[in-house]
Each structure stands twice: as structure tokens, then as C-alpha cells.
Design a protein around this nucleic acid. Structure first.
Lengths: 189, 189
DNA sequence: TAATTTGCCTAAAGCTTTTAGGCAAATGCA
DNA sequence: TGCATTTGCCTAAAAGCTTTAGGCAAATTA
């Protein structure tokens, strides 16, 4: 019997594709085995278990997102950078809803430490160089930006803003305007 | 054999408790049957299927949250109201993480329409009466507030802000200050 | 009390997860 | 090239979750 050429990496990538097609929740070891036309047990040589598979997909998504963000931020500053980073998250979530959901997967501390999570925080912080904030306000602002990006994108993806005018692109633009104004004029204690 | 006295309502409430104890993801028809010391199949007379059970728990959580929000908003306006509503979400998520996760469960359109979702939007809009915003900015602001509340709470709950100073209470306070300032000084087009 | 409804049961099929052990293909080395 | 080792995928099997079908007994109603 010819071999299918399974590796943890190929499984992870295929899992990410599967997530985008059917949703991260529906990614299962069985479904993945079916996709490779291979028996389920075969996957267990490459991936520890279902949780491990999901963790790998999450890490992949976080890497991809961080790569896109790094590229988008290069050569930009101020509001330009703010918008670019925000759009990276929003676009990624729309192009790859399953991967975006995966990026929200609760990682155990070990995995979290090895993830691109730190790069994300770094890049958000980098944006603030274009504004005049010092610690601890800078950290507060990093958290605010993270909250807005994540909150908006997941509400929009979940259909939270659906059935109402005005359209979400308009809102997104205005929210970024508002955040820019807020960062330029951050209130004192 | 004595009857256990199952009803859709009791199952839903027990399911919500179970969610808070073990996580919404882990709420299963089997686990719930175990909790009532009853055979699994018995639940299917009261609840259509696993998805239906989760939907009911989600609707319960949305109701509870809306009730708390309504009570918190009574007699408050401006920043006072903003803070009160924000705290309702954050406190609820901390007290009832499983229910809060349930409230994020993707509802099908029929369920969504019958949910307390509309009340939530109404209450956020009510807060803006204390600020000077007209449409469409009011809608943009409603969406921004929803994004921040949801985004912050879920990142905090997921441990996103864990291993770093300053503490999250401080950030939360400063973010609400910032939002208040932003709403009082909403940028023109 | 008899008839009806309701509630929980047994049985069973199908799917997912995970472990154990085995044979064959690929690879490394003389 | 030929042999030994490693690697990859397999079969088998146990255990848990979901869901449907059909049945008997308890509760309700007349």
C-alpha cells in the first residue's frame, strides 16, 4: 500500500483548511483522516490527540496573523499603522473564519508561551509609538486596541451587526477614526 | 420507578450550572442525564437535540444578562450608566464563565430573533442618550461599545492579559474613562 | 375506575476518540 | 546490492456521545 505522506505539518495545514470550510469546532481527527483517505488511527502517530491537533492549528493561525501584521506595519506609523493592523485582523477573519476561531483557542501555558502571542502584543505596542503615551497608559491602550479589534471582528463574524444599517465597513472606518482621535487625546488620570 | 421531574426549563438551568462548572463546550446531553441520574434518551423528550439544549442555555444567559443590565441602568445616566453596564458584562462573565460563553453561542436567525439580543442593543443605545450623538454615529458608537465590552471580557476571561502588569481592574477603569472621553468628544466625519 | 397522556426506560445504530500491536515500505548502512 | 532498522499506515477493540424507535408504568383527566 502506498503511503499517504502524513506529517504533523501537513495535518495541521489541512486541519486549518478544514476549519475554514466547516468551522473550527467541526475539526476532528476523524474528519481529517477522511480527507487524507486514511484510517483514523494513523493520525495518532503524528498528532498526540484531538486537543494537540487543535493547538497546532491555533499556533499556525497565530503565526500567519503575526506575519501578515508584521508585513502590514512595515513602513507605516500613526493612524496609517493603526488602520493597517486593524484591517489585517478583520481581513484575516473574513478570509479564514475557521483559522481565526482557532486563534482564539484557549492554549495551555506552555503552548501560549511558544505562540506568536508575544509578537502580536509587540506589534500593537509598536503602533503606539506614533502616539504620545507612556506607561502604564501604553499598556491600557494596548489592551483597549486588542479588545476592540477582537471584539469587533468576532461580533461581525458572528453576525452580531447583521440586520441593521449602516453597513459594517462604514462603522469600522469610523471606529478607527475614533480610536485614532482617542489615542491622540488620551485622557489624564 | 419514581420520576425525576424533568422539564425543558429544569434541564436548561442545570445545563447552565454545568456550563459554569466545566465549560460550555463540555455541556453534553449525556453529562446532563448523569446529573439527573436518568438515562440519556429520557432527555430527548424535553429537548430536541444537543444543539437545541445549547441554544436554550444561550437564551437563558442572554435573558439573565439583560435583566441585570436593565436593573443596573435604572436611574443612571452618562458615565455612571456606561460604567454600570460595562461592569454588568464583566462581572457576569467572571461569576458565570460558562453562561457567558453560552451567550456567545451562534444562534440561528429564529432563535436570535426571539432572544434578548434586541434588549441588549437597546440598553447600549440608552446609554448614549447621555452623550450628544446623532445617527449614524450613534450606531457606530453602539457597535464600538459592544466590541470593547465583549472583546475585553473575553480576552480577560481567556487569560489574554494574564502575565503582565498593571492589573486588569486598573486597565478596565482607564478604558471606561477613555470611552467616556471619546463619547463626549466624538470626532466629526 | 377507566382512558389518556406523559415520563422514563431498553435497545440499537452510528460516529468520534484513543490505545495496542502488526506488517510492509522506506531508509540507512555495510 | 542486500540486510537491518525505522517509519507509516493498518486492523482490532474499547469506551463515550448522539439520536431514534418502541414500550411499560405513573400521573392526569373524565
Amino acid at each position: 500500500m502506498a503511503r499517504a505522506g502524513l506529517t504533523a505539518d501537513r495535518l495541521t495545514r489541512a486541519g486549518a483548511e478544514l476549519a475554514d470550510e466547516v468551522g473550527f469546532e467541526q475539526v476532528t481527527v476523524s474528519a481529517l483522516a477522511r480527507r487524507f483517505d486514511v484510517k483514523v488511527a494513523s493520525l495518532y502517530s503524528h498528532v498526540r490527540n484531538s486537543h494537540d491537533l487543535k493547538t497546532r492549528i491555533a499556533l499556525l493561525a497565530l503565526e500567519e496573523l503575526a506575519d501578515r501584521a508584521a508585513e502590514a506595519l512595515a513602513g507605516r506609523a500613526g493612524k496609517d499603522a493603526l488602520t493597517a493592523l486593524a484591517d489585517v485582523y478583520r481581513d484575516y477573519a473574513r478570509e479564514h473564519p475557521g483559522r481565526y476561531a482557532a486563534a482564539q483557542f484557549r492554549l495551555d501555558p506552555a503552548a501560549a508561551a511558544a505562540s506568536a502571542g508575544g509578537r502580536h502584543a509587540q506589534m500593537t505596542r509598536a503602533i503606539l509609538r506614533g502616539y504620545d503615551l507612556t506607561e502604564p497608559d501604553q499598556t491600557h491602550a494596548v489592551r483597549l486596541l486588542g479588545s476592540v479589534f477582537h471584539g469587533y471582528v468576532s461580533l461581525e463574524l458572528g453576525g452580531g451587526f447583521s440586520h441593521s444599517a449602516p453597513d459594517t465597513q462604514e462603522t469600522w472606518t469610523r471606529i478607527l477614526d475614533a480610536l485614532d482621535a482617542l489615542l491622540r487625546n488620551w485622557p489624564e488620570r
